[in-house]
Structure formats: C-alpha cells, structure tokens
Amino acid sequence: MIVDTEYGVDSRYTSKNEQENQATALMEARLKRMKNLSNEQIVKAKLMQLKLKMEEYLKKPVYDKQNYFSEFLKLYIDSIYSKRSNFAQDIDIAPVSLSQVINKHREPKEEFLMKLMIHSEKAYKNVCEFHKKTWYQVYYHEKICETMSNQEKWRPEIEKKVKLSAAI
C-alpha cells in the first residue's frame, strides 16, 4: 500500500478522480466535525498544540533571532481570550505593559513570568500536564540563543575587558 500524503488517502483507488473524490469527502467530513466542536474543545486543542510547539522548540538547539517567547505568549493569550486586555486584567498588569512584552519593546519582569506560570497551571489543569517551568525555559532558551547568535556584535568589545592572569 502506498500512501499519498497530499490527500491522506491510500492508493487502493482505481483512478485519480476516485482518489480525489474520496479526499474531498474526507476533508468535508473533517470540516463538518470541526464545526460541531464546542468553544471549550477548540480552546483545549489550541492549548495542547501550543504546549507541543513549546516542547519541540525546547528540544532544538536553535540559534536564530525569532521571537519565540512573544509568539508563544500571543498564541497562548489568543487561544483563551477574545481580548488581550482581559488577560492583562486576569494577571493584574496594565494592558500597555502586556503589549510592550508581546511586541518586544520590554523584557518581561520576573513577576510577569510568575503570574504567567500560575495562569498556565490553571488554564492547563483540565487540558493536559503543563510543567511550571515551561515559560521560564522558553524565555531563557530564547535569551541563550539570542546571545549565542549575536556573538559577532558583543564579543569583540567584551573580550577586550576579559583577561586570564592566573596560570593554568
């Protein structure tokens, strides 16, 4: 059996037309099923997907300049809330401060990360296991990647200030 990944249908069909018809029928059935999902089921699915994306990110030694923390934060908030200001209210921060963190105009404070950790524990409670340290790991993994990928900028100047006077 050969599986055609484009359609998600195997090669047991006698014609390309039959295969395409079955693929269309399968997609229609999936869409019909998705339309019947409750808002709660959709939120849970989005949260599970986000958790898996974050775990995958943490497994990879990525050294690029993408803003994963802020992207994950946006996905998290937008999965649960229709307005980001409601999230800001729930964690007791000013909406402007949240916007600055999301848009990388300000680094999140330690208290922000703590509140995010607690909020996530509550949000994921009935979805799946979500480790307390995940947001911290994502944030600091990004910082490490950013520092390592920008060595050509900071290293020459810093290296001038570092010496080894002890004999080894």
Score class of each variant (00 low, 15 high):
D92K: 14
A23S: 12
Y13R: 10
M1C: 06
K65M: 10
L116A: 05
E71Q: 13
S15W: 03
V138M: 05
N39G: 07
M148I: 15
Y140N: 09
P95V: 06
M114V: 10
F72D: 03
S97M: 10
S97W: 01
S97R: 09
E121H: 09
N21F: 07
M27R: 13
M117E: 13
K132Y: 10
N86A: 12
F72N: 02
C145R: 15
V96Q: 15
L58K: 03
L58I: 05
T5D: 08
K16N: 10
H119P: 00
L52Q: 14
Q137C: 08
L50A: 06
E129K: 12
K122Y: 07
L75W: 04
K125I: 05
Q22I: 14
D92C: 08
M34G: 00
Y63C: 11
E142Y: 03
Y136A: 10
M27V: 09
K109D: 10
E157S: 13
Y76A: 01
K132H: 11
E20V: 06
R12E: 08
G8A: 03
K60S: 10
V101Q: 01
L116D: 03
V96Y: 06
L47K: 00
R84D: 00
Q89C: 06
P95Q: 09
K46Q: 14
P61I: 00
I80N: 02
N39H: 10
R12C: 10
K115Y: 07
S82P: 01
E6G: 13
A167T: 14
P61W: 01
S38F: 01
S97V: 04
Y81H: 07
V9A: 05
E111Y: 06
P156C: 08
K74H: 03
Q151T: 15
D64P: 04
K143M: 13
A123L: 05
